[in-house]
């Protein structure tokens, strides 16, 4: 064994990544090893003042601890409405130990806007 020549086999690839790794929403499972305080503090270092932590009450989901939401989304939609949408379309598919990235785009449109003739 000692006389054998050691050889390395390396395979590599690389690509750029964007930081922070989430843009819109991060859903945090209740038993995720990285707890909500750890996550929000990490995000504050990567993207200061950009995300807000919203706790998820047990009556909405027993699997989800909290969601991290981009403040730009919160400017367009209230947190309660966001939680309602997530609890219907996302939370049922999240395990307790998972973190799930959600792409969430909010568009706002108005109809029949009357502009007074000057």
């Amino acid at each position: 064994m000692g006389d054998m020549e050691k050889k390395y086999s390396v395979r590599l690839s690389f690509e750029p990544i964007k930081l922070p790794p989430i843009r819109d929403i991060l859903v945090l499972g209740r038993r995720l090893p990285q707890g909500k305080q750890g996550i929000i503090h990490s995000m504050e270092f990567l993207a200061p003042e950009q995300f807000e932590l919203i706790e998820v009450p047990d009556d909405i989901s027993s699997n989800i601890d909290a969601v991290l939401v981009n403040k730009a989304i919160l400017k367009r939609m209230p947190p309660q409405r966001i939680l309602e949408i997530l609890s219907t379309y996302v939370f049922p598919y999240v395990s307790e130990g998972e973190a799930i990235r959600v792409d969430f785009t909010v568009g706002i449109s108005y109809g029949d806007i009357a502009i007074p003739a000057s």
Binding site: Q34, G35, Q37
Partner: peptide, 10 residues
């Protein structure tokens, strides 16, 4: 009850 990595989360 709270199996997280950091004290503040537990």
């Amino acid at each position: 009850r709270h199996p997280h990595l950091l004290a503040v989360d537990c």
